[in-house]
Amino acid sequence: MKRSILLLAVIFLLAGCAAPTPAGPQTLRVMTHDSFSVSEDVIAAFEAEHHVTVQFLKAGDAGTMLNQAILSKDSPQADVLYGVDNTFLSRALEAGIFIPYKAQGLDQGFDAYQLDPEYRVAPVDFGDVCLNYDKAYFAEHALAIPQSLADLTRPEYKGLLVVENPASSSPGLAFLIATIGVFGEEGYLDYWRALRANDVRVVEGWDTAYYTEFSGGAYSEGTRPLVVSYATSPAAEVYFSEGALTEPPTGAITAPGTCFRQIEFAGILKGTQNQELAQAFIEFLLSAPFQSDIPFQMWVFPISHEIKLPDSPFTHYAEIADSPVSVPYTSIEQHRERWIQEWTEVVLR
């Protein structure tokens, strides 16, 4: 009996040590975050053209992914990293995990989002974090839709807003940065004091805010008609109703100075053994097939404005913010910790 147990244990452990290690020379490894997605045929076309297998490593949320890339920079686990946004860009660039590559695609006039003058990363997509509102609620109460961040502190919007914690949520951080962009370092804490006095609710993440607190979504449980979400969320409500809705039950507020634009970048990881393939992959990310696939897979906008998207709820209802709040990405990384900590003291304590 005991002997057979030992034998079993040996087999288990041997099986463990003898596990195959993947990644031959013709495998391109792409590290990305949980929200990444792409269509089968789009990636298959790239694989066929370059005789390569693309292996995606999903490493948690965007923050976890970047931490991992930085921690393992001496022996990189992938050739390409996709999904660093402008709130994390500084951290990635300072850690020196990327090698420069000036993508051909960037010459075609869509390098307005190219934030790094050394071309260590290429912009691939963007999404606007904006307030969403419950159309029915505002109609029923004959309430005007707020048109600025300052509006939110007015008494008629008391107890209506739910936001995400910037310490743990990426839209939450984006919204905090927007308030800093609008009211400045000297004014944003007063603004948040006023929001707190106006009974803002803070929850941990987007899913709790949207599904448990917000009242507007088709399946939302909550009672608050204003939430921090994305400018594309109303379009997603229609698309994911599978024909039950033709008009979104929610709207995005895209007025000037109310949204923050998240730009996502991709870069070639230092230490890659497949530099040429990695470069080809960056070009592929900026090419028409991938760019036009982005909206339907990830609900954000392609970086290229030359892309013609097929008719769909996305093209009908997804909005682009009208002059979003601009805060230099270098200052975000530099001040992030202090901003979040000051915000925590004012809003949560």
Binding site: D207, Y211, Y219, S233, A236, E237, F240
Partner: peptide, 14 residues
């Protein structure tokens, strides 16, 4: 389950 909960819309939640 978590993948479905990362997007808005009735079908995702459902």
């Amino acid at each position: 389950i978590y993948r479905f909960l990362s997007l808005p819309g009735a079908v995702n939640y459902g």
